[in-house]
Design a binder for these strands. Structure first.
Length: 281
DNA sequence: GGCCCTTTGAAGTTT
DNA sequence: AAACTTCAAAGGGCC
């Protein structure tokens, strides 16, 4: 079974060799995701910065009023305008960027015009997920503190001190519970992830593979075999994913999920180094 | 039940 | 600034 899987994967790889140095791209070019980044020293403007620039692109009404459409109850965007669905969504509006993409989409792509705008559930309030740092009252100078500053001395007396400790504990517990209950907002998908999502089923059907690791290897090779124009489609889509994510979850940061997953052993990556100072819990 | 594998890219942290 | 690490998806394999 495993052998079949390997052979199957091998055969497929043979049909999708990675571009050699003198292959599809005779002139060595930087990866598209690098090429699309702003030139060194030119920071990419945030939406806020962009719309507040001296010559801003007129902000769509829903942005200026900070109203964001909410596609579904779940914050998961994958089903919202996933490539596989065949009805790829569009941002609630088209937002101009400071500079056009290096590899603009071919007109035949057309999804910029044709994606239906997501509709908000009637009357459904838009969920605001405030960044944890903004929710910690104690860390904001001049604001009422949720957890008293150590300098704040509790009322004198043993019983009162115990009561104070209990309150501290229960507050900490409830805080932890709240954190646990808070829905996890996932990272927006990057270009390759979007590509994988679209092509996975196709690869599975072609080679009757099921193991994702093998499929992902194939997809990785296919990704490299794509033309830059084809890749540009996914980079553009990923950019829109990030943009929509930013609008839906203004306070969100990748930091929020950082270190929350159980980290796998990095033995493979550590082989060349003898650094044992890194510990993964 | 939960981590590993495997990929690329974005964004985080560390040096 | 560069290097390194984590997490996004996916689902079979494994403990």
């Amino acid at each position: 079974m495993y052998k079949e899987t390997v052979y199957s994967a091998f055969n497929l790889l043979m049909h999708y060799p990675p571009p050699s140095g003198a292959g599809q791209h005779p002139q060595p070019q930087p990866p598209l995701h690098k090429a699309n980044q702003p030139p060194h020293g030119v920071p990419q403007l945030s939406l806020y910065e962009h719309f507040n620039s001296p010559h801003p692109t007129p902000a769509p009404a829903d942005i200026s009023q900070k109203q964001v459409h909410r596609p579904l109850q779940t914050p998961d965007l994958s089903g919202f305008y996933s490539l596989t669905s065949g009805s790829m969504g569009q941002l609630p509006h088209t937002v101009s960027w400071p500079s056009p993409p290096l590899y603009p989409l071919s007109p035949s792509c057309g999804y910029r015009q044709h994606f239906p705008a997501p509709t908000a559930a009637p009357g459904a309030p838009y969920p605001r997920f405030t960044h944890p740092s903004l929710m910690l009252g104690s860390s904001v100078p001049g604001h009422p503190a949720a957890i008293p500053h150590p300098a704040i001395v509790p009322p004198s007396g043993k019983q009162e001190l115990q009561s104070f400790d209990r309150n501290l504990k229960t507050q900490a517990e409830s805080k932890a519970e709240k954190e646990a209950k808070k829905p996890t907002i996932k990272k927006p998908l990057n270009a390759f992830m979007l590509y994988m999502k679209e092509m996975r089923a196709k690869v599975i059907a072609e080679c009757t593979l099921k193991e994702s690791a093998a499929i992902n290897q194939i997809l990785g090779r296919r990704w490299h075999a794509l033309s830059r124009e084809e890749q540009a489609k996914y980079y553009e889509l990923a950019r829109k994913e990030r943009q929509l994510h930013m609008q839906l979850y203004p306070g969100w940061s990748a930091r929020d999920n950082y270190g929350k997953k159980k980290r796998r052993s990095r033995e493979k990556h550590q082989e060349s180094t003898t650094d044992n100072s890194l510990h993964y819990s």
